[in-house]
Design a protein around this nucleic acid. Structure first.
Lengths: 206, 206
DNA sequence: CGAGCAATGTACCAGTCAGTACATTGCTCG
DNA sequence: CGAGCAATGTACTGACTGGTACATTGCTCG
């Protein structure tokens, strides 16, 4: 039986997967359409057949990557009654999530180099961003009600702090590691615990 | 009198300045040697005369940018006796420093996309990174002695937290702003104060 | 002042790159 | 089964791109 000689869906999916790797590796301008094609079982012609252009392919990669990551995020469930434990676990799971998806973080960096010019054309992504914020809102509210958290910190504030830290861990590891002689990978447990500590002390202050 | 017809130093400096802009704008692969040359009063030939290759030019840009930023950092002087005030001011000055040097932050992002392959060849930069750490060490020591700071947090920990936050503010502004509908520039005072708060609560915890 | 070399300009090249014209294949459905 | 079209492959192109061969200019120093 083997693989069917023609399978539009498989061809498209394979192109998308390989393109994700190559764009994350080399950036938009650095990526070569011929290179992407050669790494698949099909040809460059198919990229133009399915995605129209290099830019169209990159947009599809971006959208697909964000969709995947948001779906993974939705699976995050911090099942603690204690809001302090919950927030610490959320920070740690976010940390894990980032270090295991460095392809995605690289795509985000690349997109920012382009000042978000491509992502801005993908309206569908904005509605996807809510789950992370919703969960945080709920934990914070419980913490405030219990008198454990201060009341002047918003979900966005916390999300930004955690994101900054976790993104940096991946996105800036090479320059930081080199300049300050730190190996993020070797001391992962230390760096993982740190952000939870920071957020909890901050929210519990006073 | 006017400009001298030939001035090696000026030509070199102009190429370096323009190349910094262009590499920060378009990335390494995206930058065009012809484009850089056209934006100066000299020609492409001079790039090869002074820097040997596109790569040589990029290396020079990187080294120059890091040197400039470290010099600016050395000027940071937090003249407080109170370590808590000092650490807050250090965080805020670091914040200001980042938002006013976005070209540099972009170069750092670009270099990380390349997994630090270029910066690793610039040995001279490692020794430059000490001032930031030295100042922090001193403030932390004073804070611990005064019983104001916890003792299990190192200078690198603090530096990483502050750097993450400040770099993110610039490096990821476009995707974050778009996805979470936040305008970093418009609420700058809020975001500036936040990181100082976080670090101080963290160091003062318990 | 004029020899000699640092500094500069011009014109070009060979390889690369995104994109396409055109032919072909094989699946599906009547 | 066979018509017709979705899917695919091959071979090519024109523009671009990093880099260079070669000529020239003008500053400096004996």
């Amino acid at each position: 039986m083997g693989l069917p000689a023609r399978d539009a869906e498989r061809t498209r999916a394979e192109l998308l997967a390989v393109a994700t790797e190559v764009f994350a590796e080399d950036g938009y301008s650095g990526a070569r359409v011929d290179d992407i094609a050669e790494r698949t079982r099909t040809t460059k012609r198919m990229i133009y057949y399915y995605f129209g252009s290099k830019e169209g392919l990159y947009l599809a990669v971006l959208e697909n990557a964000y969709r995947g990551i948001r779906e993974a995020e939705r699976a995050i469930d911090v099942g603690h009654t204690d809001p302090t434990d919950a927030i610490r676990e959320l920070a740690e799971l976010t940390f894990d999530h980032h270090v295991t998806h460095d392809d995605f973080i690289r795509l985000v960096s690349i997109e920012n180099i382009h000042r978000g010019e491509f992502i801005r054309r993908l309206d569908s992504l904005r509605t996807l961003s809510q789950p992370a914020k919703g969960l945080l809102d709920e934990i914070l509210e419980r913490g405030r009600a219990a008198g454990a958290f201060r009341t002047d910190v918003s979900a966005i504030d916390v999300h930004l702090l955690i994101s900054s830290y976790c993104v940096f861990q991946v996105a800036n590891q090479h320059t930081f590691a080199y300049l300050f002689d730190v190996d993020f990978a070797r001391e992962r447990a230390h760096w993982r615990a740190l952000i939870g500590d920071v957020v909890v002390s901050w929210l519990s202050a006073r």
